[in-house]
Simulated assay, not measured.
Amino acid sequence: MVSFSLNGHPVTLEVPEEATLLQALRGPAGLSGPRFGCGTEQCGACMVLVDGTPRCACTLAAGAVTGRAVVTVEGLGTPEAPHPLQSAFLAEQAGQCGYCLSGILVSAAALLARDPAPEEAAIRTALEPHLCRCGSHNRILRAVSRAAAEMA
Rank of each mutant, 00 (worst) to 15 (best):
C46G: 02
T20I: 04
C132Y: 03
A121H: 03
L111G: 10
I123G: 03
L85G: 03
V144P: 10
M151I: 11
M151D: 08
E74I: 09
M47A: 14
V15K: 10
E18H: 14
F89N: 07
N138M: 15
G33T: 04
A122V: 02
N138Q: 14
F89M: 09
A24I: 06
L85Q: 06
R146P: 04
A91K: 12
E14N: 05
Q93L: 04
A69T: 03
Q23I: 03
N138S: 13
C43T: 07
L21A: 10
I140V: 15
V65H: 00
I104E: 08
E80L: 06
I104V: 12
C56H: 15
L111P: 13
P116W: 08
C134Y: 01
C56S: 15
D51P: 08
S87M: 06
R139F: 04
F36Q: 08
P54A: 12
L60R: 00
H137V: 00
A24P: 10
G52F: 01
A88D: 00
Q42G: 10
G75I: 08
V50A: 00
L85Y: 04
L13I: 01
G98Y: 07
I140C: 11
G27N: 05
A108C: 03
P116C: 05
R142A: 06
G67C: 09
V144W: 03
V11G: 12
C38P: 11
A147P: 15
A24E: 05
P10E: 14
A57D: 08
V71C: 03
T66H: 12
F36V: 07
E74Q: 02
H137G: 00
R26G: 07
L85R: 06
E150Q: 12
G8R: 14
G52E: 08
E41Q: 08
P28M: 11
G33W: 11
H83W: 10
S107D: 02
I123H: 10
P129D: 03
T72G: 09
S102L: 10
A147H: 12
G27L: 06
C134Q: 01
V144R: 02
T66Q: 14
T78N: 11
R68D: 11
V48F: 02
R35K: 15
V15H: 09
A24D: 04
C132W: 07
R133N: 03
F89T: 07
L112H: 02
D115A: 11
F4P: 12
T125L: 12
P129G: 05
P129N: 08
R26S: 06
I104K: 04
T40Q: 14
P54K: 12
L90Q: 11
E120N: 08
L105E: 05
C38Q: 04
P54I: 06
A117I: 04
F4Q: 12
T72D: 04
A148M: 12
L85T: 03
S87F: 03
V11K: 13
R68W: 02
A143G: 10
H130F: 07
G77D: 08
S136C: 11
L76D: 11
L141S: 04
V65E: 01
L111I: 06
Q42A: 14
A126I: 03
L60H: 07
R124E: 13
C132N: 07
L127I: 05
P116K: 09
L22T: 02
R35C: 02
A81S: 14
L13F: 14
P84C: 05
T12D: 15
R55W: 02
A113N: 13
Q93I: 04
E41M: 05
S5I: 15
C58S: 06
